[in-house]
Design a protein around this nucleic acid. Structure first.
Lengths: 66, 66
DNA sequence: TCATTTTGTCAAGTATATATGACATTTTGT
DNA sequence: ACAAAATGTCATATATACTTGACAAAATGA
């Protein structure tokens, strides 16, 4: 399932996938795949994204289902 | 670095590494390695651990440094 | 003290997170 | 309408999360 909370948080900071990717040190395709829900990132990458966007893990990556 | 918050939360539920591993569907060595800080789990596994132990992502996996 | 459980650790294999490069499609700005 | 930027997507390659099996050391309980 897509991660729309991440997409919204990034948009709220007016950052492109590319900019977020560079800020956290991964490729643009990786950010794209995470937002699209293609695969599950490591906690380390999640933490880097959270720090960059000023959000908590629970805000961006918690999910009830599954 | 070690994940002592996870170790404490597990101990507080009186679960062995083995029991937690079975509950979340991974090997005992994987739980051991996460507590020891040997490698970074995926967010999917973190979520499964949090649900099993009744904790949030931020409680068990947030870290300030790095 | 002894048996059992739990934890730590190693080696070798498999699955998958992530990279790079490339191109098509969509969105945005003028 | 046009150009540029942003996004979606594919294919191939690499790093690493995770598995299985095994054994030693430490902790727990009778």
């Amino acid at each position: 399932m897509k991660n729309l909370k991440l997409k919204a948080a990034r948009a709220g900071r007016d950052m492109s996938q590319q900019q977020l990717a560079e800020a956290v040190g991964v490729s643009r395709q990786t950010i794209n795949a995470i937002e699209k829900g293609d695969y599950n990132p490591t906690i380390k990458l999640c933490l880097a994204i959270c720090r960059t966007l000023g959000c908590t893990l629970d805000e961006l990556f918690w999910t009830e289902e599954e």
